[in-house]
Nucleic acid binder design. Structure first.
Lengths: 123, 123
DNA sequence: TCACACATATGTTTTTTACATATATACTAT
DNA sequence: ATAGTATATATGTAAAAAACATATGTGTGA
């Protein structure tokens, strides 16, 4: 999106994402069961972090990066002639998820503090 | 920081910030009362979004950008010989804050969904 | 006068995001 | 048949944001 495009779109304010959620979300779903990119994309979208759509390219790119870093492994699968790269979480990936969860709980509390300050006077 | 530096530091996992909180936090505090950068820096830090310290440069840069965008205005003040650039929120800035609050509430709910999925099976 | 807190700011590099584009197969309606 | 849509996996690139370093100057207290 970006400020430039916001203006082009005619939006008054340009609010961007408060992000970095693709990696933890992918690890989360992969910690439950193996999955492929397209499927994981839908699951990540279901969390609703993004008012728009989650970037498809971002999901695939993040999966490949996580594989390079040893957080996940992958293998090709063929389901009815359709090829899929199915990802599995590694032990290292599980450790990373645990850390993400701590981080996310912290972040959620911080957002709570933000809102507490916001609503302190009004309403 | 970044992945490279994480490795250099000897960290096992490289978790980065889930960010974009400086702008909304500055608007939040300025919606309560005018303030200058150094003071606002401390207030933003008090929200605890960041496990580390909030970037000083980021705060000042964001304030200047917001002024260019008309979200805040500023004037120099002299307090005991010490010069400060005091910022005030504008009507446009208040509008932007309202939108940020919506966004932040959404985001908080999304984090809640994330954690709900995480804790669904374990514990 | 030395250190430290207060105060503001910019330069630069790296990382992340956003958006566009490319490719290929399977299925579904016309 | 074939055109369109859903499934599926990527990469290229530009813009934005973040991280980190550095520069500068004043006030205050030891």
């Amino acid at each position: 999106m970006g400020r430039k495009l916001d203006t082009e779109r005619g939006c008054i304010y340009s609010l961007k994402r408060i992000s970095r959620f693709i990696e933890p979300s992918l690890l989360l779903f992969l910690s439950r069961e193996p999955g492929h990119g397209y499927e994981l994309l839908e699951k990540v979208r279901s969390l609703g972090f993004d008012e728009d759509q989650v970037d498809v390219g971002g999901v695939y790119r993040t999966l490949r990066r996580m594989e390079r870093e040893g957080l996940v492994r992958s293998r090709w699968e063929r389901v009815g002639g359709r090829r899929r790269r199915v990802y599995l979480i590694t032990e290292k990936g599980k450790g990373a998820l645990e850390e993400w969860v701590q981080r996310i709980e912290e972040r959620r509390r911080a957002l709570g503090r933000f809102l507490k300050v916001y609503y302190r006077r009004r309403r």
